[in-house]
Write a protein that binds this DNA or RNA. Structure first.
Length: 185
DNA sequence: TTCTCGATATTCT
DNA sequence: GAATATCGAGAAA
């Protein structure tokens, strides 16, 4: 089942949790990469000090203030892209960072994007790695995941296959006590 | 296994 | 000019 707008127009924390287990599918020409999402983080509201949105609208973060279901991709540490999905209640602010996944289909294409000789469990265990494995770069910023023609990337709902837990978020220095990271036990 | 550290560019102060 | 929603290599253990 494809995820629709009502899925993303909910509380950012709820969406982050519900995305665990869902399949992220990428089509390149006639080849398919299918990844099960295993780790997410919520960046909710303009008052979350760890969020890009905490200092108001800027050229980079403006999508977080806009429609839910849009991809928000940003460049970080001079070399990596991170892939988010805008998700929040109407007229609110927030996005979910996709931090990790496991391969369901398309291992060959993933290795081609990530480099040969990488152990399976290291292919998708980080936001920069996930984006690179799927061939996601800054050109994807603003892509509408809800559009009718799901030609190149889309999301399908799946039940989680294991219990989910929450922990503090990774790589931040502010609001480190908020347990807004979700992943499998 | 856990750690430290350098690379690198965009964004914001 | 400083910080950053990271990664991988290499050392220590």
């Amino acid at each position: 089942m494809l995820l629709d707008k009502s899925f993303f127009e909910r509380d950012t924390l709820t969406v982050a949790q519900q995305l665990i287990g869902c399949h992220l599918v990428r089509r390149i020409d006639d080849q398919i990469i299918r990844v099960a999402i295993t780790e997410t983080e919520a960046y909710k509201g303009s008052e979350d000090p760890a969020s890009h949105a905490s200092r108001g609208v800027t050229e980079r973060n403006r999508l977080m203030f806009g429609d839910a279901g849009i991809m928000y991709v940003y460049f970080i540490y001079g070399m990596h892209c991170c892939m988010n999905i805008v998700a929040h209640r109407p007229n609110e602010v927030g996005a979910v960072l996709l931090r990790g996944g496991e391969v369901v289909e398309g291992i060959g294409l993933i290795r081609a994007n990530r480099g040969e000789g990488i152990a399976d469990h290291l292919l998708l265990n980080g936001p920069g790695k996930l984006a690179k494995a799927l061939g996601i770069n800054l050109e994807w910023n603003g892509y509408d995941l809800l559009q009718e023609t799901h030609n190149s990337i889309w999301l399908e709902y799946k039940e989680p296959i294991r219990p989910i837990r929450s922990t503090p978020r990774i790589g931040i220095s502010k609001a480190v006590d908020l347990p807004w990271r979700y992943l499998y036990e």
